[in-house]
Write a protein that binds this DNA or RNA. Structure first.
Lengths: 111, 111
DNA sequence: TAACTATTTGGCAATATCGCCAAATACTTT
DNA sequence: AAAGTATTTGGCGATATTGCCAAATAGTTA
C-alpha cells in the first residue's frame, strides 16, 4: 500500500464522512431541490441554529454545498447533484437488508 | 419533520457511515474486483487482523458486503456494486475543490 | 449610533469511533 | 485429543464527533 493510495482513500473518506450524519443528509436532500437560507433550514431541522450552521460548515468544507450572503441571510445550495444518485443505491442496500438505524446520536439527534 | 422521515435519514446515514473510513473504502474497492479472505485483506491493509475483522463486520452489518466460511478462512465479497458508481462523484467533488484529508485517524491509521 | 436580526465561533460535556492486545471460538491436521 | 491456523470478540485508552449555550461577528433598520 503506497502512500499515494493511502491518501486517496483518506481524501475520499473525508468527503463521505461529511455525508455520514442524518441531519446533513437531510440538508443535502432539501438543498437538492432549492437553495435555502440557514434560518429556514434550521426551522426544518428543528435543532439549535448553531448546530445547523456547523453541519452546513462541514458540508461546505467537504465541497458538497456552497453559500453566499445576501443581506443578513446566508443562502446555501448543493454543489454536487451527483450525490443524489447515490441515495438510490443506499436505498437498495437498505431494502435488501431490512436494516434500521444504529449507534447514531442516540436520544440527542433531532433528526 | 415527522418521525418516519427522521428514521429514513438515520437509516441512510448508518449505511453511509459504514463507508466513511479510509480502510473500509479500501476494502470495498478491493472486494469490488474479487472476493478475498480476511488474511489476504489484512496483509493488504497492513493493520492488525482484529482491526480488519472489525471493519469487515461494520461493512457486513450495513449490508455492503457478505461473507462465507470455507475451512479455516472467511471469504468476503461486495454485495452492492452500485456503491462503486458513487466514487466517481466523490472524485469529482475532490477534483473541484482540491481537498485533502482532514481530521481522520491522525497518525494511527495505517490506511 | 443604538437596537435588532442572521449567522458563526468558542467551549464544554456527553457519546461514538478507532486500533491494538489478549482471549475466545471454530475448524483442521497430526 | 492436542497442537496449529484463521477469525472474531472483549476491553481499554486515545481521538473524534455532536449538540447546546453563550458570546462574537456582520449587516440592517430605526
Amino acid at each position: 500500500m503506497d502512500k499515494k493510495t493511502r491518501i486517496r482513500f483518506e481524501t475520499r473518506a473525508a468527503v463521505i464522512k461529511a455525508l455520514a450524519h442524518p441531519t446533513r443528509l437531510f440538508l443535502v436532500d432539501v438543498l437538492s431541490r432549492n437553495e435555502k437560507c440557514v434560518c429556514e433550514l434550521t426551522e426544518m431541522v428543528g435543532a439549535d441554529i448553531s448546530t445547523v450552521s456547523k453541519h452546513l460548515t462541514v458540508l461546505r468544507t467537504a465541497g458538497l454545498v456552497e453559500a453566499d450572503k445576501r443581506g443578513l441571510q446566508v443562502w446555501y445550495r448543493l454543489r454536487t447533484p451527483c450525490v443524489m444518485n447515490f441515495f438510490d443505491c443506499i436505498e437498495s442496500v437498505i431494502k435488501s437488508t431490512g436494516s434500521s438505524p444504529v449507534g447514531c446520536c442516540v436520544g440527542r439527534c433531532k433528526l
